[in-house]
Nucleic acid binder design. Structure first.
Length: 258
DNA sequence: ATGTCAGGTCATACCTGA
């Protein structure tokens, strides 16, 4: 099965591209981020007409996450990251798809750093680490997929020296990502492609896509029960070049039947 | 410093977030 993550940067603007990509790529499960739409305005009918069941958690203007499942309805487990009931951002949803527990996340950007937004990012990361640990303790096949807003290493950014003060590349962010891997999670893209630049995001500014000045910030982390089934991984980077594209490209892993 | 999207509003010009 193919499991993908795609930050759509506004599902209203991206609906035609999303439909085209679903039809061409036919992933079994998809995590969407940055829906940027009120919960009751989500285009559920269009998604279902494309052959996907869906659960989502919208929010006016910002954030918003969804899980799509081809020919089935995801079975929702939770729609918030545990650990702070006062955090009302729609940034996490979790559900079962085809025997795999899928956690769909949109990690806070955190800029400017330092500052309250960066503090929020670090608190969110602490909660994610705690929840990820509890998921590992179940020994279930789990994928934590989404826009992490973290550049894991210097290989994952076009000009690392320019990003040292950015919340996406600060040591605190990279260290948290490294701690997730140390827990036992496998970075699907890097496991299949250990060397070289892989980008999932290109800024709208200054023709970054045309000049391939990108970042790798969309990740799919596989639990030890799932990692042995990994057979492929990639980025549908041509989608970033389509008309009215998101600044992110769909990113995916392929898994053998369990 | 530059500059581009998307969504929203005390809207047709600015604001925030990214």
């Amino acid at each position: 099965m193919k499991i993908a993550t795609y930050n759509v940067n506004g599902i209203t603007s991206r609906l035609p591209s999303l439909m085209r990509w679903l039809n061409e790529s036919k992933p079994e499960a998809v995590c969407l981020q940055e829906l940027k739409i009120p919960h009751d305005k989500f285009p559920e009918a269009a998604i279902r007409e494309a052959g996907y069941g869906v659960i989502w958690h919208g929010q006016k203007s910002f954030n918003g996450v969804a899980i799509l499942a081809r020919g089935a309805d995801p079975v929702e487990v939770r729609r918030a990251l545990p650990g702070d009931s006062d955090d009302l951002h729609s940034r996490y949803i979790e559900g079962n798809v085809g025997g795999v527990l899928v956690g769909c996340l949109y990690l806070p950007n955190g800029n400017p750093a330092p500052g309250p937004k960066f503090d929020y990012k670090l608190r969110w990361l602490e909660r994610l680490e705690k929840h990820a640990e509890s998921l590992l303790a179940t020994n279930a096949p789990v994928v934590l997929a989404g826009d992490y807003n973290i550049i894991p290493t210097e290989e994952d950014v076009f000009a690392p020296e320019r990003w040292v003060d950015d919340a996406l590349f600060r040591p605190e962010s990279r260290d948290a990502y490294a701690r997730l891997l140390k827990q036992g999670w496998t970075d699907g893209l890097r496991r299949m492609h250990p060397e070289g630049h892989i980008y999932t995001f290109w800024d709208y500014f200054r023709d970054h896509y045309g000049r391939d000045r990108g970042l790798r910030i969309d990740h799919l982390l596989l639990s030890p029960a799932l990692a042995p089934r990994l057979t492929g991984a990639g980025v549908d980077r041509e989608v970033r070049g389509w008309e009215k594209a998101s600044d992110h490209a769909p990113t995916w892993v392929e898994l053998a039947d369990g």
